[in-house]
Each structure stands twice: as C-alpha cells, then as structure tokens.
C-alpha cells in the first residue's frame, strides 16, 4: 500500500540535512509553503541553498529561514519584496550569497533536471551581464547561452488537495512553480489544504501526478 501522508509538519521535514539545496515554491506569497518552511526552522538544518523565485515575504516562511541565519545562498530571479527586508538586510550585511537568474531560466533549468536532460541553449540573457562566463552558441543564425540543469535535494511545495498517492490539484495562480519543482527534487514534500480519499480527485484535474511526490501533510486553511 502506498501512503505518502504524514501526520505532522515536523515529520514532513524530518531528515533534511545541513547544506541541502532546497527548492521553495511560490510567486511572492502565493503558492508558497510557509508552514513547511517554518517547520524547517524548527528542524534546524543550516547552511542551506535556496532556489526560489523571490526571497521571502513578511518575516515567516522563507524570510524566517533567512532571518534565522539558516540560508547560505539564494538562487532567485527577484529577491526584493515590498513587505520584507529579510533578504536585503542579510545581503547588505554580507551574510548571504545571491545568484540572480532570469525567471524563465530558473524554471526551465529545474524542468531539465526533472527530465533527465543535461541543459539547454536559451536566447534569454545573451549579451547581458547574466550570461557572462557562460558558453555561447549560434544555432540557425541566432545566439544562445548554455544553461545547466538545476536539481534540488528537497522541494517544499504547496497545493490545494492531495490523496495518499501524492496526486495534487492547485488553486488559480498558486500553481506557479509548484509543478516544476515537484518534479525536480530527490525529496518532494507538499503541504495541502486537505487530503481526500484515493479516487476522489478527478483524474482530468490532477496537475502533479503522485510519482513526483514523497510526503504529504495537511495544514488546513481557507479554500
């Protein structure tokens, strides 16, 4: 029998090691697994490399991990937020490293890792500072820059509903990075609003099939 559900947030983040590369889903605060990130603060792992679109909101979740000094490096497209200074403060104090990557490139690098590919040539960033030091190649008359796959040890995700196989559905724009990150980590952990009976999710509506998911924890919350 397959049962990926766990009873608590502590159980969901158990075993995450110091130095791990962690994919944290969300676009701003939407679709971000704040409860899992808060549980990771409690769990204690440090020296983390975070891959995320942004660098946290308010002072909890990812921002809380940064404030607690657990993050060595952030790989993201846009670290600034109007409602949080957690990253800015750590950056100015020289306590955190930043690798800036165009938003679609981060996403596609993770998709490549998920798909077992060794990278891709992208037109994005050619001729800019963000392509410095990267291999350039002309294909059919257009310039491309080589981008490597980006794989996580762990993915922290948020979805709307799950079953015990780890099949997931999402709500509106809270889907964002979740499906790609779910596929691109060795250990994919998802917090959901509710866990339903196997068979209750419409197979046509399942966005992330359970093969990509390892642990599911219900946290409740509004619909």
């Amino acid at each position: 029998m397959i049962d990926k559900t766990v009873a608590s947030l502590a159980e969901a983040v158990a075993g995450i090691k110091d130095g791990a590369t962690i994919l944290v889903a969300g676009f701003g605060a939407v679709g971000a697994p704040d409860e899992l990130a808060d549980a990771l603060i409690e769990q204690g792992a440090r020296d983390l490399v975070i891959v995320s679109n942004n660098a946290g909101n308010r002072s909890n979740g990812l921002a809380g991990l940064i404030i607690a000094g657990r993050v060595r490096k952030v790989i993201c497209s846009y670290p600034r937020s109007t409602d949080s200074t957690a990253f800015d403060d750590a950056f100015k104090a020289g306590k955190i490293e930043l690798e800036l990557v165009p938003q679609g490139t981060i996403s596609e690098r993770m998709r490549c890792a998920a798909a077992g590919l060794g990278g891709f040539y992208s037109p994005v960033g050619v001729g800019t500072k963000l392509a410095e030091g990267k291999e350039l190649r002309e294909i059919d008359g257009r310039a491309y820059v080589f981008e490597k796959p980006l794989k996580g040890d762990v993915a922290l995700l948020k979805a709307d509903r799950a079953d015990r196989w780890g099949n997931l559905t999402y709500r509106k724009s809270a889907r964002n990075f979740n499906p790609t990150m779910a596929m691109a980590a060795d250990l994919s952990i998802v917090q959901v609003r509710e866990i339903v009976q196997l068979g209750a999710l419409d197979p046509e509506a399942i966005v992330t099939p359970g093969i990509f998911i390892d642990r599911v924890v219900a946290v409740g919350g509004r619909r």
Binding site: S77, Y78, P79, R80, F87, D88, F91, K92, L98, L100, V101, P102, Q103, G104, T105, P123, V124, G125, V126, T128, L130
Partner: peptide
C-alpha cells in the same frame, strides 16, 4: 549599490 539586484521576467519578456 543600496539594493540587491532583481531581474524577474524582464530578460525573458525582452528576448522572446
């Protein structure tokens, strides 16, 4: 120099 840089989707939107 007072702010960390951010690129978001700007380069993707300009290139594609």
């Amino acid at each position: 120099p007072d702010y960390p840089p951010g690129v978001g989707g700007a380069m993707d939107l300009a290139a594609g």
